[in-house]
């Protein structure tokens, strides 16, 4: 017991003085990071809402430029030119730092929407789907209209 008491003193000193610091590479969620090609900051995207799909085990953040965010918050169901939206969807994974939480794993899809004036006075909507972190453009356009409708139907999160 005496030996233990002595060792205890040393042990408590060692434990308090050294804890192995994690490297930035271990901290940053690399797989969930977005492709640089997007130039995210310049686009002026801000968070509109986020949601989770338990069936697919995915989580998403819907971003928009100032105009898009304003339009969503006003919830007038209007689509006006110069709105820019980005919907990022990740595969979920368990949070290593908190038992009881899920966080983004790898990037699954990135969907971009841009609205603009068209010649006949109506607003045209350009929709593009990209797969994964590699930002591979998807050629499949079959769901485009469904996705556009879905994205514009999202309610913005309350952010006081």
């Amino acid at each position: 017991m005496k030996m233990r008491l002595i060792t205890l003193l040393f042990l408590s000193i060692t434990i308090s003085s050294c804890s192995s610091k994690k490297s930035p590479d271990e901290i940053i969620n690399k797989n969930a990071s977005l492709p640089e090609a997007l130039n995210w900051e310049k686009a002026g995207y801000k968070v509109i809402t986020s949601y989770i799909d338990k069936k697919d085990s995915t989580m998403s953040i819907l971003y928009g430029n100032d105009l898009a965010r304003k339009t969503f918050i006003a919830s007038e169901n209007k689509i006006i030119p110069n709105e820019m939206l980005a919907l990022v969807t990740w595969k979920q994974k368990a949070d290593e730092n908190w038992f009881g939480a899920n966080i983004p794993g790898s990037v699954k899809t990135i969907e971009l929407i841009k609205t603009s004036d068209s010649k006949n006075g109506a607003t045209s909507i350009a929709y593009n789907l990209y797969q994964g972190k590699e930002f591979t453009p998807s050629k499949d356009t079959i769901n485009n209209q469904v996705r556009i409708k879905y994205i514009f139907s999202q309610q913005p999160s309350v952010m006081p």
Binding site: E41, K46, V47, S50, I52, G100, S157
Partner: peptide, 23 residues
């Protein structure tokens, strides 16, 4: 002004029935 920041991660907290975005 936090509303104008970029998110660094969303989080689903099934322990307490909330969901979060950290900006």
């Amino acid at each position: 002004d936090y509303k104008n920041w970029l998110p660094i991660s969303p989080s689903e907290r099934f322990d307490n029935g909330t969901m979060r975005v950290i900006l």
